[in-house]
Design a protein around this nucleic acid. Structure first.
Length: 770
DNA sequence: GGTCGACCGCTTTTT
DNA sequence: GCGGTCGACC
């Protein structure tokens, strides 16, 4: 498996030894560079480790923790080590197990969200919550906001739930209460802000009533808790005498505050980060947290790790060249002793299919010629939408692969439905979940009934779930009332089982008795079959976790369901090529990396066009992508790219290669495909590179095994030109405004009387001359 | 009053 | 290709 940094030459061997005999402090600093060693051995005050990409920061962190234990300066339960992703946390735990043995698994080495959810859960009563907390994920909270907007008759076209939820999320991340948010900070307050402020306040009331918290609350509420209850703060500060934070450049204000509250007394805080890898500004990450760390803790010791142990010199040179275009950064000087390495390949594709096919062919070539495993290879892209074509092409080529982090397993509808039942059983106040399952499976309780039930519950001060039992009084029709009563009985019965059954058994009970299973079985479609399969998989995997000791209670299961991202795949064995967004790629490394879609508009993304700061963040993202590669790096772009589903009503764009490509010195690269062709203006005087000959083993520059051409509508052969009048099977007569492309890619912009202007791909459009 | 199918509009990145 | 909305039909 390709993993994180250096470590693993003797990793396995050491692991064997470590399990029997823990390492001595001296052994723990063996083989470290001077600054790495200093980071591990530092004691007695704040420590800032500025760790360039690939400089071994995970290694330093884990060694430091092991060293603290080995010297007796800390006990396992006194350490809090925080990461951003589950993946990073798991990796850190595994490495710690190698160093200090199995006790590492019981240590608090986890994500921010998980750690503070735990604290919050155990102290919930101090903030006035009545029952166990339910965690709402983005979808849940979005839905709640939507509901509030609907109740207030706010036009969802003008004020989108997404927009409001973004505002609220930002407010929470910057520690603004609804009142503070409403007042704003003196800047212009538009009507949108007003509405958002009102919704925020109502949203908070609803969450509280449901004993629910959202993602942002996992950070905001503990801050509140610590501020309001000094005794609680002191208790945790006292317990966690050593706090270590990874990826500190991506902390937001709430996270920064939490770290400060926990450590300001004992000051034993160690943060690791690299401002060049800050890529979560959109999520309110504040790069100032790391830049200002030294003024927050004036006595902080600063160590800079500049030696890179991962990539070849060429790859580092490319990364350095790109990132040096960002203004006002602290200049670091990454170097390596690995050697020059291979040139970086830049491939210009005709379109996204060609791009994907080239990548697939290269993957095959690399695995053959360089004897790389599929799991040594990763493909990155800027947006999830780009993954589909890659997947299709990989399927065609028979390359084993997996999408990392695309749709979370727990985000699938059927899974959410089943989980909603369980959440409702655990927390009867959870109105969102109650509303969700009230008509799943279909039992004849529609929107009108739901509204009535909701109104009845509110009027009588009971929960929505309780209202189900009094549906007659709520004014439901006889049929709906009967269904409602049955559901109520079912829920009551299931609640009896809550304490007696193991999580997997409970899930299975719900699956059978709710009727979800029967409904899906009755459907007889491929879709239903796959949903059934997913549910079965869920139940199995939970049972598995129970045997492994990973899950004890149903609450624990719900927590992990909400906090687990799709990155932590359920079952995984065979080596596979990993496909993921650049954001997901942070913290990982691979022998060979492909960064795709390097086009203006895609990467950097359109939305960052007018904002220099956002553009710099895109550049950091490029930096992150490039520095993931150890040996092989390929960068691709496409001349044109279909967007959306790629049919009528959408269109394709012709794209310039990304500025990031232009920022990489020519002499580090080999340029192929359209990149190798002479190009006027923008590219300057690119040398012309030959297209390699097709000798069977190399398939540069041309896709292999092109898909069999789909039968076309033939319209691309009509030779249409601007001004021609055509007839479309659906939209009738129209006038051609312009044409573009040729062959398979030929397209025309046509104005129709009724539907207006459409961009049509001629090979598929049902079009003929008038 | 409920269900289902047609259509529209949108798509940045995530714990 | 998706979710969400709306209108037609049961």
């Amino acid at each position: 498996m390709s993993g994180f940094d250096q470590e693993n030459l003797f990793g396995e061997l050491h692991a064997q030894v470590a399990r029997s005999a823990p390492k001595t402090p001296d052994q723990l600093v063996e083989g470290l560079t001077a600054p790495q060693r200093a980071s591990v051995e530092h004691r007695g005050g704040p420590l800032l480790i500025v760790a360039g990409a690939g400089s071994g920061k995970t290694r330093v962190l884990t060694r430091r923790i092991a060293h603290l234990l080995a010297t007796g300066d800390a006990a396992p339960h006194e350490i809090l080590a925080i990461t951003f992703t589950n993946k990073a946390a798991n990796e850190m735990v595994e490495r710690l197990v190698d160093l200090v043995g199995e006790r590492a698994r019981r240590m608090w080495v986890m994500t921010f969200h998980k750690a503070f959810f735990r604290m919050l859960q155990s102290e919930a009563d101090r903030l006035g919550y009545r029952s166990r907390l339910t965690l709402y994920d983005d979808t849940d909270s979005r839905r709640l906001i939507q509901e509030i907007l609907r109740e207030r008759d706010i036009d969802p076209k003008k004020v989108t739930p997404k927009g409001v939820s973004g505002k609220i999320s930002l407010a929470k991340a910057t520690l603004q209460s609804p009142a503070e948010f409403a007042e704003g900070n003196g800047s212009y307050q538009g009507p949108f802000h007003q509405i958002a402020a009102e919704v925020y306040a109502e949203y908070e009331r609803r969450l509280f009533a449901a004993s629910a918290v959202d993602f942002d609350d996992l950070l905001l509420k503990p801050v509140e808790l610590f501020r309001r209850h000094e005794d609680v703060r002191l208790a945790y500060a006292d317990r966690f005498r050593h706090v270590l934070v990874d990826e500190f450049q991506d902390t937001n204000r709430a996270q920064n505050e939490l770290v400060f509250q926990l450590t300001r007394d004992h000051r034993q805080v160690c943060v690791v980060g690299d401002s060049d890898q800050s890529i979560y500004r959109f999520r309110a990450a504040d790069i100032r947290n790391i830049l200002d760390f030294e003024s927050t803790f004036p006595d902080a010791e600063v160590v800079v790790l500049e030696q890179n142990f991962r990539s070849t010199q060429r790859i580092l040179d490319a990364a350095n060249a790109v990132i040096s275009n960002n203004a006002g950064r602290v200049v670091k000087n990454l170097f390596t002793e690995v050697g020059q390495g291979n040139p970086i390949t830049v491939y210009g594709a005709m379109d996204e299919r060609d791009e994907a096919a080239w990548v697939a062919a290269e993957v095959v070539r690399l695995s053959r010629e360089q004897s790389l495993g599929f799991d040594d290879i990763a493909i990155f892209y800027r947006t999830n939408a780009q993954s589909r074509v890659l997947e299709e092409e990989f399927n065609r080529a028979g390359i084993p692969h997996r999408l990392v982090g695309a749709t979370r397993f727990y985000d699938r509808r059927e899974i959410r439905d089943l989980l909603a039942y369980v959440r409702l059983l655990v927390n009867p106040d959870d109105e969102m979940s109650a509303r969700r399952i009230v008509n799943v499976p279909k039992r004849g309780i529609g929107a009108t009934s739901v509204t009535r039930l909701g109104a009845f519950a509110a009027a009588n001060g009971i929960t929505f779930a309780a209202a189900l039992g009094r549906a007659g009084e709520a004014g439901l029709t006889a049929k709906a009332a009967k269904a409602s009563g049955e559901l109520f009985t079912l829920l009551t019965a299931l609640r009896q089982e809550l304490l007696m059954k193991r999580p997997s058994e409970l899930l299975s009970e719900v699956f059978h008795r709710s009727g979800i299973e029967a409904e899906l079985q009755a459907e007889q479609s491929v879709d239903a079959a796959s949903r059934l399969e997913n549910l079965g998989e869920l139940i199995n995997s939970v049972a598995q976790l129970e045997t492994d000791g990973g899950i004890e209670s149903i609450e624990e299961f719900l927590e992990s369901a909400a906090l687990t991202s799709a990155q932590d795949d359920l079952n995984d064995d065979a080596p596979k090529v990993s496909l993921m967004t650049l954001h997901v790629a942070k913290g990982l490394e691979y022998q060979a990396v492909f960064v795709t879609g390097l086009e203006e508009g895609i990467f950097p993304h359109f939305s960052t066009r007018d904002d220099e700061e956002q553009l710099e963040e895109e550049r950091r993202l490029a930096y992150v992508g490039i520095t993931r590669a150890r040996q092989h790096l390929a960068l691709t772009h496409a001349e044109r790219r279909f967007r959306f589903g790629g049919e009528q009503g959408s269109g394709f764009s012709n794209s310039l290669p990304s500025r990031f490509l232009r920022e990489i010195p020519e002499d580090l690269t080999v340029r192929l495909g359209t990149s190798g062709m002479p190009r006027p203006s923008r590219w300057g005087d690119d040398p012309i590179f030959e297209r390699p000959v097709d000798d069977g083993s190399r398939t540069f520059g041309r896709p292999i095994a092109r898909r069999t051409p789909a039968p076309t509508s033939g319209a691309e052969q009509l030779g249409l030109a601007a001004g021609d009048v055509v007839i479309h099977a659906r939209w009738g007569e129209g006038t051609v405004l312009s044409t573009s492309g040729s062959g398979e890619m030929a397209a025309a912009k046509v104005r129709f009387g009724e539907v207006g202007e459409k961009n049509l791909l001629l090979s598929v459009a049902p079009l003929r001359r008038a």
